[in-house]
């Protein structure tokens, strides 16, 4: 039963993804590997759509993945699964808020969790890097380092990196602008 499976997978994601935004992404890569519901490439596209549309990114990802896997009910069920653990846990600890925050084991646990969550996000980022900027298939065939790199993509990445970090007025611009500009560049230069 696909709906039950979707609910369970996203419940798990909601329970173990710590933090906001990209924290769900490593779990979705794992889901892609285990279930075959979607490819790594499709997931990278979903991240772009989720970043460029309103709403918390994790929720957008759940709806998108659920929809592509099992239509409209799938989108709704995946989203329900994602926020169910939050709902239950927050309801329980809302009553003991201060105690929970000051509990030394909770604090110590999260001291270990935060770098872990960041490591998982970085690893998911590496998967996107491999997909967007390297051509491992062509490299495997020809063995030539020249074929390993998508040169056009490297130039775009360098420009984006500089714009988003170093140019004072531009770096404050909303990410949706960079995403749309990259889409145009991708079409014009036939990526």
């Amino acid at each position: 039963m696909i709906y039950l499976r979707l609910f369970f997978e996203f419940f798990k994601t909601g329970l173990f993804a710590v933090g906001g935004g990209l924290a769900t992404v490593p779990f979705l890569y794992d889901m892609a590997d285990k279930t075959g519901w979607f490819t790594h490439g499709a997931l990278a596209d979903m991240i772009a759509v989720s970043e460029s549309t309103p709403g918390p990114m994790g929720v957008n990802m759940a709806t998108y993945v659920g929809y592509t896997t099992a239509g409209i009910p799938g989108g709704v069920i995946a989203t329900l699964g994602l926020f169910m653990p939050s709902l239950i846990i927050i309801m329980i600890i809302a009553k003991v808020l201060q105690k929970f925050r000051q509990n030394k084991y909770v604090d110590a646990g999260f001291y270990g969790l935060r770098p872990c969550s960041l490591g998982l996000i970085a690893a998911a980022g590496y998967l996107i890097f491999r997909l967007a900027l390297l051509d491992l298939d062509a490299y495997a065939v020809s063995g030539s380092v020249r074929d390993l790199f998508h040169w056009k993509a490297w130039i775009l990445a360098a420009v984006l990196l500089i714009l988003t970090n170093l140019v004072p007025k531009v770096k404050k611009v909303h990410p949706i602008f960079f995403i749309l500009a990259s889409a145009v560049v991708g079409i014009v230069f036939a990526f």
Binding site: I47, L118, L133, L156, A157, V184
Partner: peptide, 24 residues
């Protein structure tokens, strides 16, 4: 083609996010 371009951007955005979250 559009999404091939967008993926490059997503890669840069994820990198920036990791850098930003690093200190915390």
């Amino acid at each position: 083609h559009a999404f091939a371009g967008i993926r490059v951007c997503v890669c840069v955005l994820v990198f920036n996010a990791v850098v930003k979250l690093w200190k915390g």
